[in-house]
Design a protein around this nucleic acid. Structure first.
Length: 224
DNA sequence: CCAGACGTTGTT
DNA sequence: GTCTGG
DNA sequence: CCAGACGTTGTT
DNA sequence: GTCTGG
């Protein structure tokens, strides 16, 4: 699963790396992003546009936006079958930008946080879906979900699910809403190669969603 | 037909 | 135990 | 995802 | 909106 991640990179770097249209708002570095918070996403609007959407998908038909707290992930295996996601797969695909994500290893009564990054330490893109919800006053609320798949060998050591990360080629396909071939799209929703990733233990201070400081992404230093 | 749910994860 | 808030 | 709250009444 | 259960 993916229930927490980081995105501390400057937007200028993201512009260059992902070929974005000029970004006209500042991005604060985030070391511990939790569900219900705004996350940087990219959608196609005559170019790759960076936006901030709320994490936790609130479907257009929802009466209570609280449902979004349960929709932080969508399973790749069933995303084309679930009523909540099926249509979005064709109409509202997005990227969610990150530079690392957290998974917790649960053994016995203990819970140890780990951070997973790319070996090249560059930001990357999760495969996401979004929707637009309107409150009673007609105010639009954009929200998104991150697609998950089975864990690769590296991550399987602590957890059996991981978010889908798209390489450059897959990013272009995912953002092209002209592409509606389900098989083609689902082929993108696979585990990222473990040989291109690193994993390391971090301090439990990351557990609290209120803590959003650089120490969240630092490796735990052992005393021996 | 209408009513009611619509999700994931982990654990048991 | 389960739900809500971050 | 984890942390933290979880209730009512009446009074200010 | 769309699917499932009754």
């Amino acid at each position: 699963m993916c229930g927490r991640f980081s995105m501390a990179e400057d937007f200028a770097v993201l512009e260059k790396l992902f070929n974005l249209e000029p970004v006209d708002f500042p991005l604060k570095p985030r070391y511990n992003i939790a569900p219900t918070q705004d996350v940087p996403v990219v959608i196609w609007e005559g170019g790759r546009r960076l936006k901030l959407f709320r994490w936790g998908l609130i479907p257009a038909w929802a009466k209570d936006p609280a449902i979004g707290q349960k929709m932080i992930n969508a399973r790749a295996e069933t995303v084309d079958q679930k009523p909540s996601f099926k249509n979005l797969l064709f109409r509202r695909r997005c990227l969610v930008l990150a530079d690392g994500f957290y998974e917790w290893e649960k053994t016995g009564g203990k819970k140890i946080p780990y951070r997973i990054v790319l070996k090249n330490r560059k930001p990357f893109a999760f495969a996401g879906l979004y929707d637009i919800w309107q409150d009673s006053g007609g105010r639009m609320l954009y929200s998104c979900t991150i697609i998950t798949t089975e864990a690769n060998k590296l991550i399987r050591s602590i957890h059996d699910r991981m978010p889908v990360i798209l390489n450059n080629k897959a990013i272009s396909v995912w953002l092209d809403l002209g592409i509606k071939d389900i098989a083609l799209l689902k082929n993108l929703l696979v585990p990222y190669p473990e040989e291109e990733m690193d994993i390391y233990e971090v301090a439990p201070l990351v557990n609290s969603p209120r803590v959003d400081i650089p120490q969240c992404i630092e490796p735990v230093k052992r005393l021996f």
